[in-house]
Design a binder for these strands. Sequence first.
DNA 1: GTCTATAATTCGATAGAC
DNA 2: GTCTATCGAATTATAGAC
Lengths: 217, 217
Amino acid sequence: MQVKETKRNAATSAKPLSRIQEANRKAILNAAIEVFAASGFRGATIDEIATRCGMSKPNLLYYFKSKRQIYQQVLEQTLGEWLAPFEDIDPDGDPIEELRRYITVKLKMSEDNPNASKLFANEVLHGAPVIGEFLETRLKNLVNEKAKVIRHWVGEGKLAPIDPYHLIFMIWATTQHYADFDVQIRAVLGTQAGRPGFYEQAGQAILSIILYGIRPR
Amino acid sequence: MQVKETKRNAATSAKPLSRIQEANRKAILNAAIEVFAASGFRGATIDEIATRCGMSKPNLLYYFKSKRQIYQQVLEQTLGEWLAPFEDIDPDGDPIEELRRYITVKLKMSEDNPNASKLFANEVLHGAPVIGEFLETRLKNLVNEKAKVIRHWVGEGKLAPIDPYHLIFMIWATTQHYADFDVQIRAVLGTQAGRPGFYEQAGQAILSIILYGIRPR
DNA sequence: GTCTATAATTCGATAGAC
DNA sequence: GTCTATCGAATTATAGAC
């Protein structure tokens, strides 16, 4: 059981939030990711985000002081979970199994949370104005680290001599394509694309080509 | 040598355009593809398109009656050339060589004309409001046709038993990724990504994985 | 055909009552 | 905390002079 919000302490930098405040913030961010994913930063309107969580525009702006602040918050929130499975690639694991698992998880993320993928695609497509610095620092370091792992695997003869960076890009491109271009895939395949098992089928096809393509030969 | 524009004939439905008109229209469309690719439909402004081809806003609207009309024109213009190499896949050619050529051409298109790729990515990402019908008709038919070709190749034992549709999506995703996400690639790879020969390197990596991955086994 | 000026609209953000 | 009302900036599109 929890008491009412404790009095604000001017000395603390992080102000505590009531449960209502927390709930409202979360509702806003959930609505925002949908709208930003569908329309991009410029195309999204505060009004639509507000309406989607049953709030008025000024009330929403009571919680976030600007449209850009909501956008940054949503991006930051998603960035961590988006990279987690990439970080999880284990240098000591079996190369083919590690990559199989990564591809599978990444494709599942496209299926379960296409909006997160679309959000990033939009941001990067428009020049990454907000996460540009993140890409040049943390992502760059992380990719270099994992590229080194793959190169090591190649050196051990456990993988064919492929370029680690282009392999990583291929995995990202292929898996995220199913989220970012879902409209096109649905248009081409019709109802088939929405059926249960579709993503399993896609996963098998992708794994079959890539894993066989990087097998030592 | 050419005389001045001939008098308009009210009976002809297609009105002839003077050379100046033609040149101006082309200049507008060239500027428009850059701006739409960089900012999307909503983010692009007529003012920026106009400025980029040394024109005033009202003057540009003398040639195209609305922002949407420019956008549709640019999309239509690019759609044909975009699909041409896909149509060129020859059912009677050698499967591996046909796909090698297609992947190579597609990657070169991403290198030479990234804006066309970004334009489509934006349009599809936002639900394909303009080219949606095209995707469901002409593109769908074309993909079905080529899928049949690939399936036939598989049946002949010239390719491993892979799903044709997912192979096509993988090729599209991977090659277009280098245009659509060029900012991310540049951020991760630094100056290396801009160097001459980078796309050749990418092409070799992609071809190495995919072509080996679909080889009969 | 090209310009200046401006109408009309949309949208982010704020003021201030409750 | 939430609302109504509204300001101000940006932007599409048009009117009308030249």
